[in-house]
Computed example of a mutant assay.
Amino acid sequence: MSHATAPNAHAVLPLETRLARFPAQQVAVAQQHVVSYREAGDARGVALPLVLLHGIGSGAASWVQQFEALGTTRRVLAWDAPGYGESTPVAAGSPFASDYANVLKAWLDALGIARCVLVGHSLGAIVAGAFAAANPARVAGLLLVSPAGGYGTAAPEVRASKRDARLAMLADLGPAGLAETRSANMLSPHADETARDWVRWNMSRIVPHGYAQATHLLANADLAADLAAFTGRVAVVAGAQDSITLPTACARLARIARAPFQTVPRAGHAGYIEAPAAYNTILDTFCRASDASAGNRSF
């Protein structure tokens, strides 16, 4: 049995206590621009690094259960996207995926990561797809978890409506209010209270300006176009009870990417939080296959 499928010895500890093992760090990626991130594992290992990109209502801290399970066999890193945590926002008021992908490239350069396995959840899948399409040699495997496709090809009035409704909700509720009213939508009815508390904790810490920019990104993005352009290894996974990025929509993106698609039973949109054992096994299996295809045969 791989470590990713073993019982979690830390599960009895509060998630914030467990997160303290992976403290936030900052690295300069340009003059007066930083990216904050968390990491686990040993940078000297031969396995490919695993890079995790969170969704619009989350942050690097949401991946703590993946740090614990997967950091024993490889370097695992999760960023706070531009405008989240201590990461400097992108310059554009209404950014595109390429704006975030350029920061991702600069961050990986700063950390000396030439090639990785890249995982994007929800909005993070949009950034991951844009980066992979622009830098295919740097992505040994692209795994999309409940990917958001973006509204870039929708009619202008649809794009504006989707964008403005989310911005109005942010203005009315603020981060704490969003966390109270929206966090339950991220999970299936089977999620336990620990998972619900963790989603709420992460969502309550969003930075309004960064969230607003990410809302524009969602309106502007077209993940399908980037997936059609990328010819490397891709896989797509979704929670069977995801009510935000429906499994049917995720399956469509998988077909465009010519990629395998699977659903995880009893899991919602933030499945990696509520069903960590299942998702850690998927991530571990995908990483090991990517290692093998990249020539790291010892893993």
Score class of each variant (00 low, 15 high):
residue 1 M to F: 08
residue 4 A to S: 14
residue 6 A to Y: 14
residue 13 L to T: 13
residue 13 L to N: 15
residue 13 L to S: 14
residue 13 L to H: 12
residue 14 P to G: 04
residue 16 E to I: 14
residue 18 R to Q: 12
residue 22 F to W: 06
residue 24 A to P: 02
residue 25 Q to P: 06
residue 27 V to W: 00
residue 29 V to I: 07
residue 30 A to L: 04
residue 30 A to Q: 02
residue 31 Q to N: 07
residue 33 H to D: 13
residue 35 V to E: 00
residue 35 V to M: 00
residue 37 Y to V: 10
residue 39 E to N: 10
residue 39 E to F: 02
residue 43 A to E: 15
residue 45 G to R: 10
residue 53 L to D: 01
residue 54 H to M: 05
residue 56 I to Y: 06
residue 58 S to L: 05
residue 60 A to T: 13
residue 62 S to D: 10
residue 63 W to S: 06
residue 64 V to W: 01
residue 68 E to V: 06
residue 73 T to W: 05
residue 74 R to I: 11
residue 75 R to K: 12
residue 75 R to H: 13
residue 76 V to S: 07
residue 78 A to H: 07
residue 78 A to T: 04
residue 81 A to L: 11
residue 81 A to Y: 03
residue 95 P to E: 07
residue 98 S to G: 05
residue 102 N to S: 10
residue 103 V to D: 00
residue 105 K to H: 13
residue 106 A to R: 01
residue 106 A to V: 01
residue 110 A to C: 09
residue 113 I to D: 02
residue 115 R to I: 08
residue 117 V to Y: 04
residue 120 G to Y: 03
residue 122 S to W: 08
residue 122 S to C: 14
residue 126 I to H: 02
residue 127 V to Y: 03
residue 131 F to H: 09
residue 132 A to S: 04
residue 134 A to V: 09
residue 136 P to F: 13
residue 138 R to Y: 01
residue 142 L to I: 13
residue 143 L to F: 06
residue 144 L to F: 15
residue 147 P to L: 11
residue 147 P to Q: 10
residue 149 G to A: 09
residue 154 A to Y: 01
residue 161 S to I: 09
residue 162 K to I: 12
residue 162 K to F: 15
residue 166 R to W: 05
residue 172 D to P: 02
residue 173 L to Q: 09
residue 175 P to G: 09
residue 176 A to M: 15
residue 179 A to F: 02
residue 180 E to C: 14
residue 186 M to W: 04
residue 191 A to M: 01
residue 191 A to P: 02
residue 191 A to E: 02
residue 192 D to F: 07
residue 193 E to F: 05
residue 197 D to T: 11
residue 198 W to I: 01
residue 198 W to V: 03
residue 200 R to M: 01
residue 205 R to T: 04
residue 208 P to E: 03
residue 209 H to C: 12
residue 209 H to W: 08
residue 211 Y to D: 06
residue 212 A to P: 02
residue 212 A to Y: 01
residue 214 A to Q: 03
residue 214 A to Y: 02
residue 217 L to F: 03
residue 219 A to G: 05
residue 221 A to L: 08
residue 226 D to G: 06
residue 230 F to P: 02
residue 234 V to G: 00
residue 234 V to M: 00
residue 234 V to A: 05
residue 236 V to I: 14
residue 248 T to K: 11
residue 249 A to C: 05
residue 250 C to E: 06
residue 250 C to G: 04
residue 252 R to L: 07
residue 257 A to Y: 00
residue 258 R to K: 14
residue 258 R to N: 11
residue 261 F to T: 00
residue 263 T to G: 06
residue 265 P to M: 12
residue 265 P to N: 12
residue 267 A to V: 01
residue 277 A to W: 02
residue 279 Y to I: 10
residue 281 T to M: 08
residue 283 L to V: 07
residue 284 D to L: 07
residue 285 T to I: 08
residue 286 F to Y: 06
residue 287 C to A: 15
residue 289 A to V: 05
residue 296 N to T: 09
residue 299 F to K: 14
